[in-house]
Amino acid sequence: MADRDRLTIELWILRYRPAQDEEPHFVSYTVTYTEEMSVLEALQSIKDEQDGSLSFRWSCRMAICGSCGMMIDGTPKLACSTFLRDLAPGPVKIAPLENFPIERDLVVTVADFVKKIESIYPFIMPKETKPVEAGEYLQTPAQMAAYEPFSDCINCMLCYAACPQFGANPDFIGPGAMALLQRYNGDSRDAGSRERLDLIHGEDGVWSCTAVGLCSEACPKLVDPANAVNQNKTNSAFDFFLRGLRKENHS
């Protein structure tokens, strides 16, 4: 193509600067782009060349850090793995992640999400701790396969932006935290399932989910959080009826 380097596209970016703006509003920017240019690169070019005050989170540029999640034409996506060629001719609407409070421009507040992630004991709790000399906690490939997909989560929060039930009830623990919970509960080296399950038996736990499934569609790492939620609905439901039979080993 002769004018390959002169392709342009219009981006409508939701701006909100708390000190200046009454409320969030769209601002139009036109960028020159090439075939291989991502939305993140477009934002960087705007910040470099047009408006240095534009704020957005990013780090790795290759879909492993989970920082640049945003709504692109209404769908939660990573800006670094979304390409302008697929959005042409535009204009493209870019907004901060849905269901989260806006901090500034495309930056949202993540404190609540981090608290949820921390709440589910996101670490292996072995039945008994061994001294280092006793060697590793061994695991077969099949045992690893049981939880491995859930360990691919990069905490990008796209699933939370996609989930209408999280939108309706911000206290819902949400798909990402449930995937992480399943990552540890499904690990053969872990013995903390009981403690984690006890956190999700309530209305704001696993039972806020109505199996919409958009979380798994939005996931850029194919983690399938909806599957994690569903497995734990089953676990929670059985526990509801069988809790009288379970052996309590709390001291």
Binding site: H201, E203, G205, W207, K233, F240
Partner: peptide, 16 residues
Amino acid sequence: MTRPPKRTIAPIFWLL
């Protein structure tokens, strides 16, 4: 450690 949240009766209807 925080107290575990109150259970809901949703599992009954969900299993049905």
